[in-house]
């Protein structure tokens, strides 16, 4: 940039002002949408989090940090730990499984397109539809999954009513749902690998595992990183599958943070919007913290071409 504009140049200043005006005009629609759907609700949540709630859930007097103080219990700590455990149970397989599928599917073999479409299909499912299907598979009395297991000589399991298994069962639904989208992203990333780099690697003797771990995965790290961040946030906000399959039970085994917010605000005529908003802000902080950790630690290893 050889021509650095001098602030005293009136023509350049006018152009600069025009640019800013133009930029603002283009940004206005999205800023408006953000204001209405993000900033205003956030402000409202902060306001409500500092208020008590009356019989009808209307904000009453200021309670300061009282709602947050109410969250300093072992129970809520348990909810946070459970939520993090659930995120790990979802994110790790949601990356590994699609990767394991995408790498072989990147081969140019006849019929691969069919597989790719089939494996990507869960992407088109809504949470509710998928949860209803899985509720039939898991049904405590008439489980299709157990029928298959028992026909093969195995033992059926109490997928949703065994407290030690319920979280895994719910995570499995989420993983299944994530697989479709994540597979699409990874397939696209694999297709976008630089042919020259691959050829050079082959000439240098890279084969099998070393090809995968030293060449392929580093080349697609931008996509992998994107998926880690997005999948983590999705997992953190899981609600539909828990609402439909377990309602947070058994014994709170699937009572993750968003379900806890719902339970406080809407279930059983509760209407404690103050406490629920405080939990919502905790969710915001957890999400930001996880994202910050990911950007701080993982992104350093991301290789952008």
């Amino acid at each position: 940039m050889p021509n650095v504009p001098l602030p005293s140049d009136p023509r350049r200043r006018a152009r600069r002002r025009r640019d800013i005006t133009l930029a603002l005009a283009f940004l206005a629609p999205s800023l408006l949408v953000f204001a209405v759907f993000v900033f205003f609700p956030l402000g409202q949540a902060v306001f409500l989090a500092t208020r008590g709630s009356d019989l009808f859930g209307r904000p009453t007097v200021s309670v300061g940090f009282g709602n947050f103080a109410k969250l300093l219990t072992p129970e809520f700590g348990g909810v946070l730990l459970l939520t993090l455990g659930y995120v790990v149970l979802v994110v790790v397989p949601s990356i590994v499984l699609p990767l394991a599928l995408a790498v072989p599917m990147a081969q140019r073999l006849p019929g691969m397109r069919l597989f790719r479409t089939a494996f990507a299909l869960p992407f088109a499912y809504s949470v509710a539809a998928a949860s209803v299907v899985f509720s039939l598979l898991y049904n405590p009395g008439t489980s299709v999954l157990n029928w298959v297991l028992e026909s093969l000589g195995g033992q059926g399991r109490a997928w949703l009513t065994d407290p030690s298994l319920a979280l895994v069962s719910v995570a499995l639904v989420t993983v299944w749902m994530n697989t479709g989208f994540n597979l699409l992203v990874l397939s696209a990333a694999l297709a976008g690998r630089d042919e020259e780099v691959l050829e050079a690697a082959v000439l240098d003797g890279a084969r099998g595992p070393s090809m995968l771990f030293r060449i392929t995965i580093p080349l697609i790290t931008p996509s992998l990183f994107f998926l880690v961040v997005v999948t983590t946030l999705n997992a953190l906000q899981s609600f539909g599958q828990i609402f439909i399959l377990t309602r947070g039970g058994p014994n709170g085994a699937t009572g993750v943070l968003v379900y806890s917010i719902y339970d406080t605000a809407f279930a059983n005529n509760a209407s404690d919007f103050g406490l629920a908003s405080a939990q919502g802000l905790v969710l915001l902080l957890v999400g930001l913290a996880l994202a910050a950790i990911q950007f701080g630690i993982i992104e350093r290893r991301v290789h952008y071409q």
Partner: peptide, 25 residues
Amino acid sequence: RRASALALTVSGVLLAAGCAGATGG
């Protein structure tokens, strides 16, 4: 990329946080 991913992150979480607080006067 970094900026847009961060924006995505923030807006997603904000939406979830905002959901908890919807009442009127």
